[in-house]
Design a protein around this nucleic acid. Structure first.
Lengths: 223, 223
DNA sequence: TAGATTGTTAATCGATTAACAATC
DNA sequence: TAGATTGTTAATCGATTAACAATC
């Protein structure tokens, strides 16, 4: 599982009065909503109904309204939602209204693919600001405008550069080791593309993305 | 999600007597099980309990047993499961006991990352046998041992090479167009890495893998 | 036989959808 | 006001976990 599955990370932000345990699936859909809203916004459309928003993503309109209701009342009965306002509110909820700073560990093929997303990330409030590799030949220069350092210096750079999220695209054998180093440097969020289960302390959030599982499970549906 | 989310593909194989609607999440876990079983098998361990299998993946032992129970009785009460036997049975269920033939459309960074997985895929019963690109400079030769043709010839090659699954890593603007071509050529399973919803006929199964959503939703948990 | 672990049912938990009064 | 669409509750659906008799 990549995704969808294998969200065996830590616990959600603790449920409280104004935060009554938000399902993980809701958070993922919020990101999808911003993407659709962005498109509508660029076409100059100013309002959108839950039906329209749902249709664009293959979702039920009730689900859209319920998702949003977790965070407040954003709509106008009889009218719908104001596109730009809703987009802004959701980005604020997700925390992508400020720029999230990413580090990439492992500048292999997948790593570089993620780096090439940088431009898109930037638009979305994300930015890969540093990369690390164990191969000295890859170290020193830049890849896609991102400086590449040796993993032995990782801890220091992670702190200095105020990294929010570490993306792991290293060989399976060293994933845990690299994870430990990152956590020592104060990292609390890891996006793990390595098909290995990582052991981390409670306060660290690991998100698993497992590309080969996606392919493998699709095979079942061929028959 | 990736994963997890955005499984808005067609319907499951129709529920019948010996096939009582298998949840999608179960299928994904089956792939994970084979991976763990492979490891145990290589360490020379011959049997494994649902507890051990679950622990290796952070899953409940009851869930492991229930997942397997969808497909028959594989275990021995008081003993557990025979590693190699179980592995073989699951691979047979998933259809990865034969080699699944993949085509890649779009030889960009992500495409090449997926190509570089080829070796691993092969071990798992997967093989990328052909790739396509619209850039003439990429066409003609091979990448990671896989021949690259121009998209204009895609339909013909897909048929001739008996492709099972098409992996899409093309620019967003052409995703639907490429999809239509693939479907015309008889493709029924698509693994879509492009953040675009694809319109496909009922019989075609689309699986969405959305890397930037994974990152974006992780941002929420930073706070 | 005693100990262990399965397969399976029932209980719980979570997520989606339908329905509709409230409201612009 | 009439029409439309929200926010929200209740109903449904699906997935996970607990519990335990069956069985090796």
């Amino acid at each position: 599982m990549l995704d969808e599955l294998r969200n065996q990370a830590g616990e959600d932000p603790s449920p409280s009065a104004d935060n009554p345990k938000i399902p993980k699936a809701v958070i993922k859909r919020l990101s999808l909503y911003t993407r659709v809203l962005q498109k509508f916004s660029m076409s100059g459309i100013e309002k959108i109904s839950s039906k329209e928003l749902g249709d664009a993503l293959g979702l039920n309109s009730a689900q859209v309204r319920k998702d949003l209701a977790y965070f407040g009342q954003f709509g106008v009965p009889g009218l719908g939602y104001y596109v730009e306002e809703l987009r802004t509110r959701i980005k604020s909820i997700l925390g992508t209204d400020r720029t999230v700073r990413l580090a990439l560990v492992g500048v292999g093929n997948l790593g570089q693919a993620l780096l090439s997303y940088t431009t898109q990330f930037q638009r979305d409030g994300f930015r890969v600001v540093v990369a690390f590799d164990a191969d000295k030949r890859k170290v020193g220069g830049e890849r896609m405008g991102v400086p590449v350092f040796h993993v032995s210096d990782m801890g220091r750079h992670l702190k200095e550069m105020a990294i929010d999220i570490v993306m792991l695209t290293v060989p399976a054998g060293v994933a845990q080791q690299v994870t430990d180093l990152a956590i020592q440097a104060g990292i609390t969020a890891i996006l793990n593309f390595v098909p290995e289960r990582l052991l981390v302390p409670e306060h660290v959030k690991v998100h698993y993305v497992d590309l080969s599982i996606e392919i493998e499970s699709l095979s079942y549906y061929l028959k």
